[in-house]
Amino acid sequence: MAGVVKTGILGLDAMLNGGIPEKNQIVLAGGPGAGKTLLSFEFLYRNAKQGNNSVMFVVEEEAEKVLENAKGAFSGLKDIDDLVKNGSLSVEGLSAVSNASESMRQSSYEFGNFISDIEAIIADKKATRVVIDSTAVLEILVKDPLMFRKSMLALVVDLRRLGVTSILTAEMSSLEKQSLSFRPEFFLFDGIIMLYLSGEEEKRMQSMEIIKMRGSKHSFVTTPYDISPAGFKVFAAEEITQE
């Protein structure tokens, strides 16, 4: 039986009943500003600290910018640079994905190239933990809905074949829980974690819910979280058992 990959994020592993089942492919969905990039970055950081090579592919921003943002938000995590330097934690931007940036702008870049480029980097880094942030750009790359479905499937299949444990972030149009709906491609993933943002200004509340996590008896309770310089803190109420 496969083991679990601890996220190392305070409170989240309790919700996950230990962690993410190894080699699972997870989608982390939420509206803008919910903390998808930071949460997935912390997952990689914590795993890199445990000696698991981790790589993040950012397809919407420059890698350096994402890294700087993460260091700014997690100012208490002093060893990010060390992990980057020793190669156990990598943030790869479009420029690193084999000229994808330029090709994408020229609309000549195909999804298949994207997958093979990602595969090459994962092999080169010997990574076992992977984040792709985010899938929104890929949807722009493949406009036909059926082709997009097949392309996403090809991506998930490839990650599965490579044996990595991965998180793919997905952008939702709404922040509110009630107006969110699941997208067809979510079916492909072994797990779905949703991030919600509710309330206004100083009463803003962030919470998360594990919709599914195949192979795991996880919590179904929507749980608030906070982002601090020391990382995420998920206020998991372990006393609650639902089923």
């Binding site: 509110e176 829980k177 919600y196 509710s198 309330g199 009463k203 509340m205 919470s207 309770v221 929507t222 608030p224 109420a237 609650i240 639902q242």
Partner: peptide, 13 residues
Amino acid sequence: ITNSSLQGDCYYA
């Protein structure tokens, strides 16, 4: 709970 959304989540849970 003063935050209405969290209050709803609380009743839900």
